[in-house]
């Protein structure tokens, strides 16, 4: 527990950690767990982790420990689940979340080139967050079911495509607050 504070400063950089470890945060976790009363704890675990991540953008270690204690799930099992499934993050995310689709159609229609352009522009690699906490970049290996838009990117749950490198660059320069022409998935 003690080294959490230093760890936070170490890797978070400019990202504001939404988890402060305050009593308020702990209560919030407990209220998420109360929403699953009547469920088998194991059955509720993954939905609960989804809700926790929706709240904080990642799975804070201390919050996971609370779940472990409340529901009597061994911490090792819980961390196994959190790290096994690609949805769950163990680090805070940037304010903008950019996914580059590298599905089997997007990959051959220019997805990797978009990915490279984004990596060079943001100076991070897939899975990383910029130091100022603005951008998190990830590679999507799954499908958006919108292959007619290939190659596409997903910026804050909104799909853009087909994109050229320049268009992606402009998108990163001016991330739209309420994007036009697309829909929040």
């Amino acid at each position: 527990m003690d080294n959490n504070a230093t760890k936070r400063q170490f890797y978070i950089g400019g990202i504001e950690d939404p988890w402060t470890g305050s009593q308020q945060d702990r209560d919030r976790v407990l209220s998420i767990l109360r929403g699953f009363e009547g469920y088998d704890p194991l059955e509720a675990l993954i939905p609960a982790l989804h809700e926790l991540q929706k709240e904080y953008g990642y799975i804070p270690e201390e919050a996971a420990n609370i779940i472990s204690q409340e529901w009597q799930i061994p911490a090792t099992d819980l961390f196994g689940v959190v790290t096994f499934y690609a949805d769950f993050r163990t680090e805070p995310r940037g304010r903008n979340m950019l996914w580059i689709c590298e599905g089997a159609a997007c990959y051959f229609m220019g997805g990797p080139q978009l990915g490279q352009a984004a990596q060079e522009k943001l100076k991070i690699e897939y899975g990383e967050t910029t130091l100022d906490g603005e951008w998190t970049l990830r590679r999507a290996d799954f499908c958006y079911g919108a292959c007619h838009l290939a190659p596409l990117v997903d910026l804050n749950h909104t799909v853009f495509g087909p994109l050229s490198k320049d268009e992606l660059g402009r998108l990163i320069d001016n991330p739209p607050k309420e994007p036009e022409g697309s829909h929040k998935l």
Binding site: P41, I46, G80, V81, F84, F88, F142
Partner: peptide, 21 residues
């Protein structure tokens, strides 16, 4: 689910529902 392709396999899907890897 939680974003693992392997969860589409029948026995893996069962573990996924049971809140396991």
């Amino acid at each position: 689910g939680a974003g693992a392709y392997i969860s589409g396999e029948a026995s893996a899907a069962i573990y996924g529902i049971q809140g396991q890897k």
